[in-house]
Structure formats: C-alpha cells, structure tokens
Write a protein that binds this DNA or RNA. Structure first.
Lengths: 186, 186
DNA sequence: GTCTATAGGCTGATAGAC
DNA sequence: GTCTATCAGCCTATAGAC
C-alpha cells in the first residue's frame, strides 16, 4: 500500500496532538504505546516509524507542547503590561484549566515525570522554559518575578487538581490570583 | 516461624518509610510492589498482609507523609509569625529539598499522580491538606494567602527539579522566596 | 508507512507451604 | 507473617509481510 506525500508528517503531527492530550490527562508512565496508537487509529508497531523510543516521544512532546503554550501567550490581544497579564491570569487560573488537563498546560501535568526523565529531556525542557521565562520577563520587567509567576501558576493548577471538590479548587485558584495581582501592584 | 508481638506494626511503619522515599523519588506508578518489598528486605507476597492493594498503600502514604510534614511545621522553634515563616521558607525552599525528593515533601513529587487517583485517595489528601492550610492560616492571618503559599512552595520545588543545572534551580527557589517575603510584607 | 505477530520483561495480585 | 510459585495482563521494542 502506498501513502501520499506528506502523509507521514500529517500523522506525526496528529500523534503529537493525541499523545499530548493522553499523557497530560493520564500521565506519561501510565500511557502505553499501544493505548496511544489505538487512540490514533493505528497499531503499536507503527509508533517506531515516528519515534525512536517512548523517551523520544516525551522529548518531542516537550517542544511541541511548550511551543504551543508560547504561541498562546503571544496571541494575547492586549498591549499594556497590566491588561496582558490580567488576560493570562484569567485564562491560566481558570476552573476549565483545572478540570481539563488534556487541553491545558504541560507544566502542572508532567513536570514531576520530566524531573525524573533523562538529561536530554530536561535540557529540551529547559530550552523551552527559558523562552517562556523571557516572554514573561519582558512583560513583568523582572526576571525573579517571572520565575515566581511560572511556579505559582503551575503549582496552583497542580494543587487544585488534587482536591476532590470544585469549591476548594475555585478557592485555590482565586487565592493564587490575589497573590499574583498583589505582586504586580507592588 | 513465629514473630514477636509488635513485629507487624514495626514492619508496617518501616514499609511506609521506605515506600515514601521510593515513590517520592521515582514516582508512584513507576515503583513496583516487588521493587519496594525487596528494598525492605522482603518479597512481594508479604506486601498484601500489610496493604489491601497498591492504591491502599498510596492512601496510607498520603496520611503518614503529610502528618510528618505537619509535625515538622509544628516543631518550628520560632514564636513570632515573621520568624516562624522565615524559618519555614528557608527549610522548604532549599537546594537540598530540590536535590533530595526522597527526603522531602510529598506535594511536589506526587501531586500529579494523586490528582489522577481514586476519589478515596483525594479525600484523604484533602483532609490532611486542610490541616496544613489551617496551620499556615493561623501564622499568616489570611486563608487566601495560605493557599497561595502552599501552591508557590510546591510549584517552586516541582519546577526547580525539572531544570538540568543547579544554577537555574537556585534562581527559581530564590525568586520564589522573594515573592513570598514580599507578600508577607504587604 | 502500517500491519500482524512476537519477544522478553515487568506489573499487580493470589494460593498454599512453612 | 513471610515465603515461593504462579497467574493473566500489560509494557517497550523488534522482525518481517504487505
């Protein structure tokens, strides 16, 4: 059977999208190659014509997911630093983000597993995180504040997701917004 | 073979200590029953005379680990709110805590997996987290600030651990300390 | 490029001897 | 209470047909 030109690239992109969703939702270790490929309408054997190993997928995923996040940030329509940041806070610290890890940021879902991964994965991650940090530093005018924002954002979604009631989840993201807005004002 | 009275309780406590270390270091899903039991000098069959299932271990672990963290907090020797908090910030946001997950807090290591666990696990987690939140609220005098602190602390250690160089790790925890100290002052 | 089939190993969990 | 032995199922990865 022949495949049209560009087919592999298209499938590759599709695999990254599907595996991103699955792994953010269920975890990297908990998501098997077979499960992933069947969700993409293929069988496990075809996985290795796209990725050298499961670790290679994680590496690729780190780049594609964090690049997508940066694109989201740069598509923020607001100009002034205050409006820009307010828009991002509302989007990131939303109950939707808490309830839908599969559609959300990589950081709260997969950071713990990335911290335990190969150096090559962490170096790729560092590279992308530094780009995000640079964008935020530009808006905040302060490198330290930018790092603290990243930690607060990821930490809030992470903790909110562990809690069993939406009431507490809302309390956590609300509290986090208050702290960050206060940090901006001072 | 007979076993002296209190032997099971002693082994049970030992198992919790060892499994806590292993799972904080390598992750819950990634740590098998066999690996865990051999680290404790036993074989896998004996696991099930201590815990009904692996999930049951996680549930028990949540209580024992977070209780231990609360004990640490309450053993803080300082009286005034400012000194008490400064002591905790220095202890939690230390490079040792970044480099030694096996000896550190459960939150940065296992929150993502707890968020994906059974409701029974998350309810147990909620119960303990609320106790910690209450302690912090008492010191900070503000419920929202207490939630935001918890998120910032866990998030900072989580993100720092993903980074490949100690230089960046130090930068992240330093930035986090600055934000929290600033929040205290205002 | 994807398929089926399969290898070898690890997983969580159980049964029965001691 | 812990042991050995074992189960069925899943895992990552590979070989070869189409």
């Amino acid at each position: 059977m022949r495949y049209p030109p560009g087919y592999k690239e298209k499938k590759h992109t599709e695999l990254l999208k599907i595996s991103g969703s699955l792994m953010k939702k269920n975890g990297f270790a908990a998501t098997g190659v077979d499960t992933l490929m069947h969700a993409a309408g293929m069988t496990s054997g075809a996985f290795y014509s796209h990725f050298a190993s499961k670790t290679d997928l994680l590496k690729t995923l780190v780049t594609s997911e964090l690049t997508a996040s940066q694109t989201l940030w740069t598509s923020n329509p607001h100009d002034t630093a205050e409006d820009w940041l307010d828009f991002e806070l509302e989007r990131y610290l939303s109950i939707q983000h808490v309830l839908q890890p599969e559609a959300g940021c990589l950081l709260p879902s997969l950071s713990a597993e990335i911290a335990r991964a190969d150096l090559s994965v962490r170096e790729r991650y560092e590279q992308e995180l530094l780009k995000g940090h640079a964008i935020l530093t530009q808006r905040l005018g302060d490198e330290n504040l930018a790092w603290a924002f990243i930690c607060q954002l990821a930490g809030s979604i992470l903790i909110a997701r562990t809690l069993p009631t939406e009431e507490l989840q809302r309390m956590v993201i609300h509290a986090s917004k208050l702290l960050l807005r206060n940090a901006l004002a001072s």
